[in-house]
Computed example of a mutant assay.
Amino acid sequence: MPRTYNEDGFQQASKVKDSEYAKTLPCNKITISDPFQWLALGLNDFVRSPIISLFYGACFAIAAAGIVGLIYLQGNHSHLVILPALIIYMLIGPFLALGLYDTSWARERGKQPSLLHSMKAIGRNSTSQWSFAVLLVVAMIFWMRIASLLHALYPSVAGASIIDFAPFLITGSIAGFILASVVFSISVFSMPLMLERRVDIMTAIFSSFNAVRSNPAPLLVWAGVICGGVLIGFATYGLGMIITMPILGYGTWHAYHATIQKKH
Rank of each mutant, 00 (worst) to 15 (best):
M1D: 05
E7C: 06
D8G: 11
D8Y: 13
F10T: 13
Q11M: 14
Q11S: 13
S14Y: 12
K15W: 08
E20Y: 01
E20M: 01
A22L: 14
A22E: 08
C27G: 10
N28P: 02
K29L: 09
K29I: 07
T31P: 04
T31W: 03
D34N: 13
D34Q: 12
P35D: 03
F36Y: 06
F36D: 01
F36N: 01
L43Y: 01
N44D: 13
D45S: 14
F46S: 00
I51F: 01
I51Q: 00
I52W: 02
I52N: 00
F55Y: 15
Y56A: 00
G57P: 01
A61D: 07
A63W: 00
A65M: 09
V68C: 00
L70N: 03
I71W: 07
I71A: 09
G75I: 04
S78K: 15
H79P: 03
H79A: 10
P84V: 06
I92W: 00
I92Y: 00
G93I: 03
F95A: 03
F95E: 05
L96T: 06
A97D: 00
L98G: 03
G99Y: 03
G99C: 07
T103C: 11
W105G: 07
R109L: 14
S118N: 10
I122P: 01
R124A: 03
R124I: 02
S126P: 05
Q129P: 05
W130T: 14
F132E: 03
L135S: 11
L135D: 07
V138D: 10
F142G: 11
R145V: 15
A147S: 11
L149W: 15
L153M: 10
L153H: 07
Y154S: 14
V157Y: 02
V157F: 04
A160W: 11
I162Y: 08
I162V: 14
I163C: 03
F165H: 07
A166E: 12
I178E: 07
S185F: 09
S185Q: 09
I186F: 12
S187H: 11
P192Y: 03
M194N: 10
L195Q: 04
R197I: 01
I201Q: 04
I201V: 15
F209P: 10
F209D: 04
N210P: 06
N210M: 12
A211S: 15
P218L: 07
P218Y: 07
P218T: 05
L219P: 02
L220F: 15
L220V: 13
V221Q: 08
W222Q: 09
A223T: 08
G229K: 09
T236G: 06
T236Q: 06
T236A: 05
G238D: 09
G238K: 10
G240P: 13
M241I: 05
I243L: 05
P246I: 08
I247A: 01
I247D: 00
G249L: 12
G251S: 15
T252Q: 12
A255C: 15
A255Q: 09
Y256K: 11
A258Y: 06
T259M: 06
T259L: 07
Q261C: 13
K263V: 14
K263I: 12
